[in-house]
Simulated scan of single mutants.
Amino acid sequence: MTLLRIDSSILGPNSASSELAELVLTAWRAELPSEPVVQRHLGAEPLPADAWATVVGAGYTPEDQRTEAQKSAVALAQSLAAELRAADHVVIAAPLYNFGVSQHVKIWIDLAIAGGEQGEKLLDGKPVVLLTTRGGAYGAGTPREGWDHATDYLRRILADVWGAELTVVEREFTLVGVNPALDAFTDTAAAMKSTAFEQATTAGKALAAR
């Protein structure tokens, strides 16, 4: 029973999304302590920014005429698709950056799609936990309602395109305590953090039971 964990934060030990992922993983390991975990950190070890364009170009090039760069990019894309296929459980930590997914996540998604078969559901029927974090608040009635262009996109990719059975855990106001302009929301942020922590732990236990 292999778990694939994907992190994408650029904040290292200060990452709120990785903190949630660790809670999921801790709960999962408590139930399945001997099962393997494969980890990929897209923020700490980014995929090549030009790899997807190179793969697309390779698609228009006869295989025996491809450059070494094209061959390498195609192999990378295929390995990412294979990594998703091989996983039984998946945990993805994806913070909101500049109102969308990070470049690291987008490159990973584009390459994995390119590395699979046309229309392949790489996570078909597999349980996946998506952990999203946002520095501010984007809920109904807030000034930035509708500005989160990441979460719905990730739902479409993971559930609709790749076929995952998706659980989403969200945490907002992660910049409270960092940005003084948000100090008035300290209590709200604390409550949101507590709820997200509980949901992440629950999600990890549920994941292990699948």
Rank of each mutant, 00 (worst) to 15 (best):
H41N: 14
Q39R: 15
S15L: 10
T2I: 08
G146E: 11
V24P: 03
T54P: 05
L123C: 10
Q65W: 09
A209H: 15
A196C: 00
A189V: 05
L130E: 02
N14Y: 07
Y153A: 00
K121H: 12
E31L: 15
L4V: 01
D110F: 05
V55K: 06
L96Q: 08
K106T: 08
A49V: 15
M1P: 13
T151V: 07
P33M: 10
H104M: 07
A209Q: 15
K106C: 03
V129T: 06
D50S: 15
S18V: 03
I92K: 01
S102V: 07
A27S: 15
E63F: 11
V105K: 03
F99S: 04
G139F: 07
Q78V: 15
G100Y: 06
L131A: 03
V91H: 10
A206K: 12
S9W: 07
V91K: 05
L25N: 05
S18W: 03
K193T: 02
T132S: 11
L76E: 04
A184Q: 15
A44W: 00
V161S: 02
Q39C: 08
G12F: 05
T67H: 13
K106F: 08
Q118G: 13
L20S: 01
P95E: 06
D50E: 15
P13T: 02
Q65E: 15
G136H: 11
R171G: 00
G115P: 09
E68W: 08
V168P: 01
M192W: 06
A87Q: 03
V74H: 04
A30P: 08
R85S: 13
L96R: 08
N14M: 04
Y60C: 10
T174Y: 00
S8H: 05
D187F: 02
A206C: 14
N179S: 13
S17M: 00
V91F: 03
G100Q: 13
A21L: 09
A137I: 08
S9P: 08
G125P: 11
A140F: 11
D64T: 14
L11S: 08
G125V: 12
K205S: 15
D160H: 10
F185A: 14
T167L: 12
T195D: 09
L84S: 12
S72C: 06
T174N: 02
Y97K: 01
K205D: 11
T195M: 04
D183S: 14
S72F: 07
T132H: 00
I109Y: 03
W147K: 00
Y60K: 14
R134F: 04
G115N: 13
A191P: 06
V176W: 03
K193N: 01
L11F: 02
Y97L: 09
L32C: 09
G12D: 09
A181I: 05
P95R: 04
I109F: 01
A77N: 00
L175W: 03
T201I: 14
L80E: 08
E198L: 15
K193C: 02
Y138V: 09
R171F: 04
T142Q: 09
T26C: 02
Q70I: 12
E45Y: 07
V128A: 04
R144G: 08
K121E: 14
A200V: 01
S8P: 13
